[in-house]
């Protein structure tokens, strides 16, 4: 059992190999319940793999993951994934309208999405409710990202994993999404873990931050540490990003 009961997600010596490559290396640590944790690190550091482990799309080769204090394997996969919402990096949409995409989690669960709830979620993420009848493929990159977040919220998850959702957006949309993340965290009391390439965002939005490099958790703590990291590799990475 994990020792820290305020952990939304806790990793105990988690390793993951794919095709003989060691992608996640002996990670131990917790994402604190109710807080926003930002996850930073160079490309290929294993950030998305960590999310896939949390959402149960893959399982660790060794080690244990606890979700809200319960071992991940004690959850039915379907319940785990509804509880740990995962907005994929490229905001994949299925063929069909915005409404169909938004309602997808309910459709998969044999339920329908009420018009009021659909409108509320659209407004929450800053999309016009009139977009509901549009074809999802016609949305811009930023609108798709917002719809992807709204769609993940349909399941009312406790934990929300956001994978580089601002990477392809312009500055205005990025600001919208930052405000949205804080709003979701405040109003819905959802634990948010957010992968971002932007260190400034990581510090301003995150309560806590993790730096992942080459599959290892190099340093973590309250986001302020990113200004003066102790770890040499993290220091080099942050200086490199700042240049």
């Amino acid at each position: 059992m994990p020792n820290n009961f305020t952990a939304a997600i806790q990793f105990n010596e988690v390793n993951f190999y794919a095709d003989g490559v060691h992608i996640i290396k002996d990670i131990s640590g917790s994402f604190i319940k109710g807080k926003i944790t930002t996850l930073v690190g160079p490309s290929g550091a294993g950030k998305s793999t960590l999310f896939r482990l949390c959402n149960g799309l893959i399982s660790p080769t060794s080690g244990d993951i606890y979700i809200n204090g319960e071992h991940i394997l004690s959850y039915e996969p379907v319940n785990l994934r509804r509880n740990v919402g995962y907005a994929l990096q490229d905001a994949t949409m299925t063929a069909g309208s915005v409404r169909e995409n938004l309602a997808l989690p309910h459709t998969l669960n044999g339920k329908s999405l009420h018009a009021d709830e659909a409108a509320e979620l659209m407004e929450l993420v800053g999309l016009e409710p009139s977009f509901l009848s549009k074809n999802a493929k016609d949305l811009s990159g930023g609108q798709r990202q917002k719809l992807s977040i709204a769609r993940t919220l349909v399941n009312r998850p406790d934990i929300l994993l956001l994978d580089e959702i601002t990477s392809s957006l312009d500055r205005v949309s990025k600001q919208d999404i930052e405000e949205l993340i804080q709003k979701i965290n405040d109003q819905y009391k959802v634990t948010i873990i957010w992968i971002t390439h932007n260190l400034e965002q990581a510090m301003t939005i995150g309560d806590y931050s993790w730096v992942l490099m080459n599959g290892e958790l190099k340093e973590n703590g309250k986001s302020g540490f990113l200004k003066n990291p102790i770890n040499e590799d993290v220091l080099h990475f942050i200086r490199g990003e700042a240049e």
Binding site: V78, R81, R82, G85, L88, D90, T92, P105, R151, N155
Partner: peptide, 11 residues
């Protein structure tokens, strides 16, 4: 990706 999306949403 669509397969993973549906699984990730609890399908």
């Amino acid at each position: 990706k669509e397969t993973e999306l549906i699984l990730s949403l609890g399908g």
